[in-house]
Design a protein around this nucleic acid. Structure first.
Lengths: 139, 139, 139, 139
DNA sequence: GTGGTCTAGACCACA
DNA sequence: GTGGTCTAGACCACT
């Protein structure tokens, strides 16, 4: 059982995908936040620890953490570690609408270019939406 | 409806994913062959046309085509264009599912980071899905 | 005389200040944007060129550019260079007020800890505000 | 008003500047000596007190004090505390001006990046300047 | 021990 | 030529 302040996230890298390692790390942290496995204040593995776990260079992990710090996904405290931040994005209704439409368009265009139908897409989102523990209704 | 010999494939690129453009192009062609949108003998857009469409350098498109030619996915007929060969691309239902899940996860994670609910997301997809003229059902 | 698309910015580093090189570079770009020496679309010196100019490692320049890309200060086009972006921040009136108060508090606290009076601060801001070509009135 | 033997200095740290905390502390003491806010014999806050005030590790404060002792800026009397020595800190008007200009530039650049006008900035500073009880005139 | 900065140099992707 | 990624290893700042 997780005690707050400690992270039991399992990281893994696809060495062949061509996706940069540091981006894979960032994505896994974002996913973990999205589905509740990581929450505010939880400490990420140390740079050196994760580097050993993944068998990559510490600088590569540091780069992922640095980018997440810039993006306000984590905060780092010199000498003590890297922690999930309580990032809050404040958007008004119109801006929310614009942001959602923008990212949805990119997603649908991509899905369409792979030949997926609206039916398949909606089914998939319903499945994954529950898995990620997305809140069901707008507050 | 496709007339043989002409391609109505819509390509799209994710400029930020870190996945090389030429690999994205190849993958989209493979997906289209696998699900029947492209079949033997259909002509791909010319290098120059596709480069303009995607706003990328023609060399990048040429590289994708060259790579596909090496893999026997397409054949180039000097002077007339690039055509789908009869190489079988095997991508079963499970693999299709994995591809869709992957891009859906990225999308939902991003949406979740902005606090959007499943309800908002589904509404938005239905709206934009019609607008973007996605096919409604799987073929 | 500057032609658009070319940058005549003179960069310089204080090697002894203890301020990281990449942060000094970012700050100088931000300053140049703030006072109009750099505007949307202008190309920054190439990574290698600036590294030679400043006698530092190209990776250090690349890091500065990468951080500015994340912050939407510049956009990079693979293979062609790094350009000032047209970053726009949309904030409503309340958010504007909060943002300004926040950064002003930090500034005043710092100035006070150095012993500067309100009188000195206002004089200094008036001087520098003109120099930076800050717009005088709210639009 | 300062009574000799007690220090009313307000320290502040810029956590993001990249300037080491201990250097920031030293600089603030030097500035205070230079402009008369601190004079010979005045006691600095204890290491532990200042560490709590600034929310940093006591070792960091201790390091700043140790460095100042080496530089003869302060003397430590075992068991009773740390006191300003009679070392002269020379910081003339021009140097003061440069320090203020530096931090003001950082502030204005940031404000400019959010599109604030000189008018808004000055209003905000006047408001907050009173609230934060900045001294109104130079001593 | 923690993270941060910088160098040096290799190799890749793209124009 | 452009920028991007990764490694290896040194040294610093802070807990």
């Amino acid at each position: 059982m997780n005690t707050k302040g400690e992270s039991r996230l399992e990281f893994s890298l696809d060495m062949k995908s061509g996706v940069p390692f540091y981006k894979q790390i960032i994505f896994q942290v974002e996913m973990a936040i999205a589905d509740g496995r990581l929450e505010k204040g939880v400490q990420l593995p140390t740079v050196r620890t994760l580097a050993v776990d993944l068998s990559i260079n510490p600088n590569t992990v540091a780069r992922a953490y640095a980018e997440m710090e810039i993006r306000n996904i984590v905060v780092t405290q010199q000498g003590s570690g890297t922690f999930i931040s309580d990032k809050k994005i404040n958007l008004n209704a119109i801006e929310r609408e614009q942001v959602l439409s923008q990212i949805t368009k990119v997603y649908l265009t991509k899905a369409a270019s792979f030949g997926f139908s609206l039916e398949e897409i909606l089914t998939n989102i319903n499945d994954l939406g529950s898995e990620l523990k997305l809140k069901k209704e707008t507050v």
